[in-house]
């Protein structure tokens, strides 16, 4: 049982990780992330990269939808803007990836700000529909602006290079994707220690009284859209380096729904929720595939019979979460922690 946590300064009380135990666990996690690619094969390195990309995009959406309360179904489209930006910069200018990625984020942020304008008038489902428009309009642009996007054929992206080394395998690219993901998550967590994050939450909880309390809605709603799209853009840029080809079909509306599902399953309005949700949504189908593969030797028909069931199980898991833990995986994690803190007593 944890008896108390004594703090001697306000700074210590405001810290991101406010106990020594937490800091040690975080260090252990970072160490594990560094060691992971050496222990894993290409397949798991691939999955880790994909999960990290999804975590970035989902965290962006979580800032917008989970924290600011603005439902968006445009996240994948803004990822597309980032991916195309990287593809174009690589092919036409050949600038290095550490320049391209921020530019991808900024391009997406600009698009997000424009498509966020309806949020000043509409909320909830209506806003969700308005952001679907973003999806369709951007898809149309990707598919038809031939001279720039090369139409439906898409653009092939050369591998990112660092000091002359082409980062052309998941193992190599992991060293770009994972640090970027960690930095962006820390940034998101920092946000909610300041007035910016408080303004977002206030807008979510009661936008009208937030305004009377001195928070200009126009500015902060658009900031939230821009920031969410920046995260999407960087994720899209990494996606482009990862898959090395960008086409209009790479970022369908269903991908936006995937991110929305990820933050709902993970827990809206918590940084941890975006991480857990995106990792869950990325890995569970793969884990189910492995399980099916594992029973194949003893039951040869398993692959044929169970493969379709896999999708059903995945869907059932999501529905199960919505019913039994509407606050998401992050809340389960929090409860588990509390149980340990209180042990041997119970709540």
């Amino acid at each position: 049982m944890r008896i108390a946590s004594a703090k001697e300064s306000y700074a210590a009380d405001e810290a991101l990780f406010d106990s020594a135990v937490q800091r040690r666990w975080f260090a252990a996690l970072l160490a594990a992330l560094v060691l992971f690619p050496f222990a894993a094969d290409q397949y798991w390195a691939f999955l880790a990269c994909l999960a990290a990309i999804n975590v970035i995009a989902a965290t962006g959406l979580n800032i917008l939808t989970g924290y600011t309360g603005l439902v968006s179904l445009g996240q994948a489209a803004f990822m597309g803007v980032g991916a195309y930006t990287v593809a174009l910069l690589e092919n036409r200018l050949g600038t290095p990836f550490f320049v391209n990625l921020p530019l991808a984020g900024l391009a997406a942020a600009a698009a997000g700000t424009v498509f966020g304008l309806p949020s000043l008038r509409v909320k909830g489902l209506y806003l969700a529909i308005a952001t679907i428009a973003a999806s369709f309009i951007l898809h149309f642009v990707f598919a038809n602006w031939d001279s720039v996007t090369n139409g439906v054929r898409g653009i092939t992206v050369p591998p990112a290079t660092l000091a002359g080394i082409a980062l052309d395998t998941p193992f190599k690219l992991y060293w770009v994707i994972m640090p970027v993901a960690v930095l962006m998550l820390l940034g998101a967590a920092n946000l909610f220690r300041t007035r910016v994050g408080r303004a977002f939450i206030a807008i979510r909880d009661r936008d009208i009284s937030a305004e009377v309390l001195g928070i200009p809605l126009l500015r902060w709603k658009l900031t939230s859209f821009a920031l969410a799209s920046f995260y999407a853009g960087v994720a899209g840029g990494l996606w482009a380096y990862f898959f090395r080809v960008v086409t209009p079909e790479s970022f369908p509306l269903i991908l936006s729904i995937f991110f929305l599902a990820a933050i709902i399953v993970g827990g809206m309005g918590t940084i941890l929720g975006g991480i857990l949700g995106a990792v869950f949504m990325t890995l569970v189908p793969e884990v189910l595939k492995l399980l099916v593969g594992a029973v194949a030797p003893v039951w040869p028909d398993a692959v044929v019979l169970l493969s379709p069931v896999r999708t059903v199980v995945f869907g059932a898991l999501i529905v199960g979460f919505l019913i039994f833990e509407p606050q998401g995986l992050a809340e389960m994690w929090r409860r588990t922690r509390r149980a340990f803190h209180l042990w041997p007593f119970r709540t």
């Binding site: 940034g187 998101a188 920092n190 946000l191 220690r193 300041t194 007035r195 910016v196 994050g197 408080r198 303004a199 939450i201 206030a202 979510r204 909880d205 309390l213 001195g214 928070i215 900031t223 920031l227 309005g269």
Partner: peptide, 24 residues
């Protein structure tokens, strides 16, 4: 969705200057 402390801090919003980059 906020603690008592954050609710109180929110009141100061208009008198603070922290921007997005500082916050991140």
């Amino acid at each position: 969705g906020m603690t008592v402390l954050d609710n109180i801090k929110l009141g100061r919003h208009a008198h603070m200057r922290t921007g997005l980059l500082d916050a991140l």
